[in-house]
Amino acid sequence: MSTAAVQKETKWWSGGRSPFNASYGKVMMWYFLMSDAFTFGAFLISYGTIRFSQNFWADPNHVFNSFPFAGHANLPLAFVSLMTFILIASSVTMVLAVHEGHNMNKKGVEKYMIMTIIGGIAFLSCQAWEWTHLLTGEHVALLSDGTLSVLPTTVKANPWGAELSHEAIAAALQATPHEQLASIASTLHHGGEAHHSVAAMSNAELIKFIQESDLKASNTGPIAFGGYFFGITGFHGFHVFSGVVINIVMYLKTKMGHFDQRGHYEMIEKAGLYWHFVDLVWVFVFLCFYLI
């Protein structure tokens, strides 16, 4: 009997069988993911609501423009593209593992699970680098007291407001005390000139030095930005982390032959659902934080 015929003739809802032709475990996994989609949905929609309520929001192309080992090169969105690619690739290896599971190929499942786990760890490492970069980042912003200062992006500070004009920067530099000027100057790379001397320079010299190096500075932006960014990418990262843990457990269970004994690799399928969901969420996080 062909599958299509069975599907048509079966009275799916009459009891004694699953109306979805799926085990309860898989049904539960799907509904859990739906539930989790509402958790993420609530986070992202909250973020959108706050963004809609603000006159100004940080431009992702300014915030996310660095790449490891690339110094101060302006590479908007490059690093996050790499992260996205890693996650898509690990999704592919996961679906291949599920595929091998359908064919009862233990070695194949093991191979692809390992690759998926590596992908997950690589993604987490990228995220760790990005967080560190933002948290220790060196962007110059105009504080409410009218002085310029080096500010990192944290949940309590957001240096990514509207960009300042040259005149505004010049005015603010006059009001900025010595230590702040020195710390601004030390973040600048200025034609190979030594930075260690900045502490010894006078205010006027510092201001000249800073202006010559074409300093870019902006207002502070709404502090909520950092909270939402770290909160949501952190919650996603937590999901990736738990996905990696689940995948490691699944790998070990495969290795020990649990699924061969059981006669099916449905657990791999369920872990796969979770892993793809993590990828799915990233697609939306990528959209909300990096693209628009």
Partner: peptide, 20 residues
């Protein structure tokens, strides 16, 4: 494949990896 009897028929998974 032996698995839960909740399942009426087993979907055909024999397709290659081309689609993936």
């Amino acid at each position: 494949q032996a698995s839960s009897p909740e399942i009426t028929f087993h979907p055909n998974h024999s397709g290659g990896t081309k689609k993936i």
